[in-house]
C-alpha cells in the first residue's frame, strides 16, 4: 500500500522544484541587496536607471513570456501524441530565447558605446551581475529546449519546460526591480 505525500502533488520531478526554489532564492537575495544598496544613493540609482531602455526590456518580457507559453504548449502537444508539433513549439520557444539574447546583447553594446561599465556606478554592478546571470540561464535554457526537442520523451519536455518557466519567473521579478522602479 502506498502512502500519499503532499510532495506527490507537485507537477514534474521533485529535483526541478529544488532547482527552481534555489534559483529564486539566489535571484531574490540579489534583488533585495540591489534595493538595500539603493537606499544609500536613491538619486544616483535613478540617474543611472534613466540610461536603460525600458521599452526594449518590456518587449523582451513579451518575448520571454511568449516563449514560455510555447514551451508549455509543447508539453501538452507531446502528451497528446503530436510529436512533430511539440518539437516545432520547442524550437520556436528556443528561437524566441535567442531573440531575447539578441536584444540583451544590443542593450549591453549600447551601454558599452556610452562608456558605461560594471564599475561606472553600483547600480550597474548589480545591473550587469543580475541581468548577466539571468542571460546565462537563458543560454542554458535555449540549449535545454533544443535538447528536449531532440530527446522528446514527455518527462524530458516537462523538465526542460519547467527550467524555462523558472527563467521566465525570475525575469518577471527582475525586470520591474531593475528597469521600472524609479
Amino acid at each position: 500500500m502506498t502512502e500519499d505525500s503532499v510532495l506527490d502533488e507537485l507537477p514534474g520531478d521533485l529535483m526541478i522544484w529544488v532547482l527552481i526554489v534555489s534559483e529564486l532564492l539566489v535571484f531574490g537575495a540579489g534583488l533585495a541587496a540591489f534595493l538595500a544598496v539603493r537606499i544609500t544613493d536613491p538619486a544616483g540609482f535613478a540617474e543611472a536607471q534613466d540610461a536603460l531602455h525600458r521599452t526594449g526590456a518590456g518587449i523582451n518580457t513579451v518575448v520571454l513570456v511568449t516563449s514560455g507559453a510555447l514551451a508549455a504548449w509543447a508539453l501538452r502537444l507531446r502528451e497528446g501524441a503530436r510529436r512533430g508539433a511539440a518539437r516545432l513549439a520547442l524550437i520556436a520557444a528556443a528561437l524566441l530565447g535567442v531573440v531575447f539574447l539578441w536584444v540583451k546583447g544590443a542593450e549591453y553594446a549600447a551601454k558599452a558605446a556610452h562608456g558605461i561599465g560594471w564599475d561606472t556606478h553600483p547600480f550597474y554592478t548589480f545591473y550587469y551581475l543580475l541581468t548577466g546571470f539571468h542571460a546565462a540561464h537563458v543560454v542554458a535554457g535555449v540549449l535545454v529546449l533544443l535538447l528536449v526537442a531532440w530527446k522528446d520523451a514527455p518527462r524530458n519536455i516537462e523538465a526542460g519546460a519547467a527550467f524555462w518557466h523558472m527563467v521566465d519567473l525570475v525575469w518577471v521579478l527582475l525586470f520591474p526591480v531593475i528597469y521600472l522602479l524609479r
Binding site: 502533488e9 507537477p11 523558472m166 518577471v172
Partner: peptide
Amino acid sequence: LAWLKARVILARYLGLSAAPFW
C-alpha cells in the same frame, strides 16, 4: 503587477493550479 505575473507563471506555466497546497 510583478506578483500577479509570477502567480500566473506558477499556476499555469508550471502547473501549480493542480497542486493547491504548493
